[in-house]
Design a protein around this nucleic acid. Sequence first.
DNA 1: CACCGCATGTTCGGCTTTCGCGATATCGAG
DNA 2: CTCGATATCGCGAAAGCCGAACATGCGGTG
Lengths: 293, 293
Amino acid sequence: MFGFRDIEIIRSVVRYGGFRAASDATGLAQSAISRRIRHLEDRMGITIFERDGRGVRLSAPGRRLCDEAEILIAQRDRILGELTQGVMAGVVRLGVAETMTHTILPRLLTNLGQRHPMLRFEISVDTSDQMGQGLKDDTLDVVIMLRDQAPRGIALTPVPPVTMGWFVSPSHFTLPDPADIDDLAALPIVSFPKTTSPHRKVLQLLTPGRRQPATVHGSASIATMLHLVRQGFGIGTIPHSIVEAWPHPMLREINVRPKARLPDLEFGICYDAERNGEIGREVARAALEINPI
Amino acid sequence: MFGFRDIEIIRSVVRYGGFRAASDATGLAQSAISRRIRHLEDRMGITIFERDGRGVRLSAPGRRLCDEAEILIAQRDRILGELTQGVMAGVVRLGVAETMTHTILPRLLTNLGQRHPMLRFEISVDTSDQMGQGLKDDTLDVVIMLRDQAPRGIALTPVPPVTMGWFVSPSHFTLPDPADIDDLAALPIVSFPKTTSPHRKVLQLLTPGRRQPATVHGSASIATMLHLVRQGFGIGTIPHSIVEAWPHPMLREINVRPKARLPDLEFGICYDAERNGEIGREVARAALEINPI
DNA sequence: CACCGCATGTTCGGCTTTCGCGATATCGAG
DNA sequence: CTCGATATCGCGAAAGCCGAACATGCGGTG
């Protein structure tokens, strides 16, 4: 077993060419260096320095130890520096609602990566309620999620709203132009998962005054939603930005009356201000910078 | 500043979920863990664990420290294991005569690499006298060099001899068939550097009984020797294996009388048995394995 | 060739600092 | 109030360091 102190001393001996010179450099007595290295050699059962009457030279295993130890020390110093000088570094566990992966996320990560090259991201895509839980039990550091599903006591910075539209495959369904609520509610609907607020809002929009509740399917995968709508499984509530990113000839937006319009999705950047205030504020800053409100 | 012990303890606390549980796991008293971590936090000026009445949780910088420390500990254990269990690992500084780079070196390295995957090679190509010096002043671990130039007190394992031939560009020079010593000595000759024994042997071969010493140029680069011979700068003394590796229509071997034949090059694997016996023997073993004598 | 100074590493006794233990105080949640 | 957790404190053991004395090799000098 060896410690950082041991290998620092070995490095000094190698660098300055002897125990005596190293003792000047390290501020230790020469005897202390001699004794430490001898003890280390005994503990590890290897020879690190070969001695003869006029000095010391590294042995083969000593040189190996020294080579590797150099890296170890450098890493410790880097860690130490990053931690004490407040450099943004390490792993950020970032949770993202899928819609965001097609809008601000790429630019957000680019911006953060440029400003903080030592930062690494661990990105999960999940439903907002799951990620809200992650924030609370400290399995996620920062989450970009639906604002109205953010847990209590969590810092929240809004990002620009995402507009929604009704989409249909024209070869499977025909609708009046403009369509009204009842026209939409008569068809199967594909929306977000039922644990999310947009799903509930769709239900609320369609249900009032109707005896038969609308059929609303939920999907946590936007790609799946698109496929289902294209294949005529139903009509979909989909962010405009998604359709722009993946345009498809089988997909057309339905023109609806004002009362049937879908509300915008309101996302926000959420984090525990106590625990992750620093990185959270930085993510919020980056979001503002790439997409000023 | 933190030591291995510190981060091992932190890891225990994280892994077992608290100071008390970690104290059982590490065999330390709970008070010792508490005090050590507090001192560490004071020294580094950061909070590693957030405490409240019912336990501890990692803070953000604490998690970073813990993540990075895990890697540090793993590396230390790897180094320790390799050193104490005699695993062949680390960097081997290997010196090679250029001729060998075209003969046994590739297979030698392949063999060694397969048997000792943790080994890294740092290969230098130089003249044998230079590398002999490198062996003595411990800037090279193992050298494949001309046997007769190996320093004293160095372990030496022979490798199969390399046969030499006289080569010429037929469009520039015409020679009798077979050629005799005087025919060769009348032309400019391109050979190895004049510090090497093959160069001296060429001189000895050509000089006896001649009033005018032969003109022998030296080159430490075999590629240059080949170019010079091809361009008619002179005739060359070149290993057969080199010409086989780089065949060229402008290059033809001269048929010479027995007395004008060049002696074989005798190479050997050299190393300091004291310092690098282990790896040296292993290189010798590999050489025998790929090319049994 | 013997001697002596110089430089280097080693060993040893004594002292300081670090570290751990055990008992006890303290704190928050149920 | 009690339970389960961490914090604090005094004591003692161990590790680590220092300085001095000692051993060894090299090179200059008479």
